[in-house]
Amino acid sequence: MNLFEKITNHELLAQLDERDVFFTTSAERSWLKTMLEHPAAQEALSRATLQQLQTLLVNDEPLQLHESLTEKAQSRENQVFHPLIHSVREAIQKHRKLRFLPVGKYGVAGQPCLCIPYKLEYSMVKREWYLLWYKHDQRRLMSTRLDKISECREEPCLEAEWHEAQQEIRRRLELQRDSVTLEIPRQYNQELSRILSAFSCFEKQVRHDENENCYSIILHFSSNEREYVLSRLRFLGRRVRVQDHQAMQARMHQSATMALSRYQEG
């Protein structure tokens, strides 16, 4: 199976799009058939759609991967699909609000939430789905695990209110942006590729000081992701050093001294 086919040439596909031509390749169908074997297919697709797909793909072979491909160090796959995904996506599509009851550890807790949904977010680390929404009355951006949502239903939303909310969401996302400059001590230059891989899931810029042969990374993230960034910094240990973020420097120092005190106690 070759991934470089002229049938997926971008110019050809653009012309076919203009002429309203749709097709699938056997490689795409094989991939789809393989994915239908995953338990998530039963949850994501209605029985009728699943059956129709299985009929359409009857002559295609699934990819034979299990003998040749192993995945290591992945988080346990708690959840790939969530039953609320289709209805939330539909609310976003139709510009509707959602009203739901938050679920706590011991069942439904708190007041009903009225929200303007804007994205569905899957964490590759936690392997869970989250609803990203805007709390209009408090002008706050919120994130709620789909598992913690019950009795979710659509409510109408004025188009003007929807658009105003979208602008506000963009503005608030911008306000939440944080950044940190990380310095790579020169003795770890040989591990640059590994260090950059570890941060490749973030928005970043890399700087190279040619005279000193020193690399630094400017990492951009949302302020509510700081804990994850810190865990990534601890993961890399001595290979990176926070250069310009006092709060994060203090946290790294605190982690190190507290960890040392554990060992002294032990």
Binding site: K119, L120, S123, M124, S200
Partner: peptide
């Protein structure tokens, strides 16, 4: 509707 999904910490 088509761009509603985000995948966090994705390589």
């Amino acid at each position: 509707a088509l761009d509603a999904f985000l995948y966090k910490y994705h390589y």
